[in-house]
């Protein structure tokens, strides 16, 4: 519990390191677009269970991450430690969130706002694109501040970009449309999150 506290007190310092710079492979075409892009990994109403790892500088905290879609565009995420205790229980849509439960050490407005933004980006189901960029192997859709990278019809990456700087990048690895692994990396904070689908045998 105290390691969490340390992690996020430190993250409060907002040590701004250099942000990632937005770069894509050579464009073949670039055009306006109004397509609806779906993130299919979190549309099931059946709960999905992932092994969760939060990395902060040299610290690591593992746990269990449970996602459940509660209604259209509304999601619930619960994180517990491996030792058993529930740490966080959030219900949210893109704009707002409700804290069902949070341990005191994590009950910081800044942190909850950050996690809401991260989780919302991770699970948000639908994006309306304004630009479409085609490269040799990928199709990249721009939707407001987000870039969605598709390859072979599968969502592979989402980037949150402010100005020309990349703030957050999520990489998805899937098998037959089922998410197996996701990595969420911050570029202005030394924080990243990893999810691995928990199998029946684990």
């Amino acid at each position: 519990m105290s390691s969490w506290k340390t992690l996020f007190l430190l993250s409060n310092l907002f040590l701004l390191s250099a942000c990632g710079t937005l770069r894509f492979p050579a464009e073949v075409s670039h055009e306006k677009s109004s397509e609806s892009i779906q993130n299919v990994y979190f549309i099931s109403e059946k709960p999905q269970i992932f092994l969760f790892k939060l990395l902060f500088k040299d610290n690591q905290q593992s746990g269990i991450f449970v996602h459940k879609k509660t209604e259209d565009n509304r999601h619930r995420v619960v994180i517990s430690s491996l030792f058993g205790g529930t740490l966080l229980d959030l219900t949210f849509d893109r704009e707002n969130y409700t804290v069902n439960y949070v341990v005191e050490d994590l009950n910081k407005k800044f942190l909850l706002n950050l996690l809401h933004r991260d989780f919302s980006l991770l699970v948000n189901e639908r994006y309306l694109s304004t630009q479409k960029i085609q490269t040799q192997t990928q199709t990249i859709y721009q939707s407001q501040q987000n870039y969605l990278v598709m390859e072979a019809g599968q969502l592979q990456q989402i980037q949150l970009v402010k100005g020309k700087k990349k703030k957050v990048q999520i990489d998805y690895t899937s098998d037959n449309g089922i998410l197996q692994h996701a990595t969420l990396k911050h570029f202005n904070l030394p924080v990243s999150i990893e999810l691995d689908l928990k199998t029946e045998n684990e």
Binding site: P47, I49, I64, V66, K68, R76, V78, S80, L82, G84, T86, D89
Partner: peptide
């Protein structure tokens, strides 16, 4: 054997 009961899940998580 540890069973974690979470309100969000129908089945308990086993460790």
């Amino acid at each position: 054997i540890q069973y974690k009961h979470m309100d969000v899940l129908e089945e308990d998580l086993k460790s």
